[in-house]
Simulated assay, not measured.
Amino acid sequence: MNTRRFRELAHNGLWKQNTGLAQLLGLCPILAVSTSMVNAVSLGLATILVMALANLAVSALRSYIPYEIRIPVFILIIAALTTVVDLSFNAFFHDLYLVLGIFIPLIVTNCIVLARVEAYAAKNDPLGSTLDGVMMGLGLVWVLGLLGGIRELLGAGTLFSGIEMIVPSLSAWNVFGDGYPGFLVAMLPPGAFITLGCLIAAFNAINAKLAERARRRPPAAPIAQDATDAEPAAAG
């Protein structure tokens, strides 16, 4: 894979086609699990695993899957991989598994995964498809982490609450101290919608500013004709 293709996949996944801010896919887990940064990032990492492995499997098997039944086969592959991730979380991060609850199995129905499998993995090579899944997943992770961090900070005055479920030696960071009363709306569904709306507005504003800057950029100067090429033309 060349550098140009890698940069294109990374830019599309992390920013241009960001699943949470540009495509607005998977809003149910984005809004429901983002009450804390740890919960949000953990679900995002589980989604990365499923997306990368599903893209790899579909890309490797695409020539053997009849076009007419591709969607049921894709869902079966995603369901099998989601089950593996679900059981792994239950075995190694049981407390976190109990907190995330039904949202890990619901990765099967997450339109982000099926959309990338259908739009990219079914038409491209395994390496590029795997990288596409990873980058799209990372784009979801940073949105989830930012959304969860903002809601947790405003709602409870802490960051990394629940980190002890992953690393027992660590604990949450109490940013505003014990006297912070909390902002309940930030932890409720309306707070999730408002915060995500602000992030989408900021995303669109940044893209508009970048587009305006690109329009104002002066065009590149034409390349001067080489003297050895101009001489025969003049002679003619």
Rank of each mutant, 00 (worst) to 15 (best):
A91N: 06
I69V: 15
A119G: 02
F160T: 10
V141C: 12
E8S: 11
I104Q: 03
N207P: 06
I71R: 07
V84S: 01
P222L: 01
A221M: 10
L96V: 15
L27F: 09
G197A: 10
L96R: 10
P168D: 11
S161W: 14
P105H: 00
L146K: 08
A46M: 04
N110I: 10
A201K: 08
A122L: 01
A32F: 04
I65V: 07
K16L: 10
I166G: 07
F193N: 12
T3L: 04
P29W: 00
Q17Y: 02
A40W: 09
L31P: 15
A208D: 13
A221F: 09
V73F: 12
M51W: 00
G148W: 05
A211S: 12
P168G: 13
A202W: 06
I48T: 09
S129D: 03
K123I: 03
N90P: 00
A10Y: 08
I206P: 04
T47Q: 07
N55T: 05
M37R: 03
V85Q: 06
M51I: 15
V85G: 14
I163T: 03
I200S: 00
V108H: 05
F74H: 03
L25S: 07
G133M: 11
N207R: 07
C198H: 04
G155P: 13
T35W: 09
Q17L: 15
A115Q: 00
S36C: 04
L45M: 12
G157L: 11
A224L: 09
T35A: 00
A46C: 13
G128Y: 04
A80E: 03
F176M: 06
L159V: 05
L106Y: 14
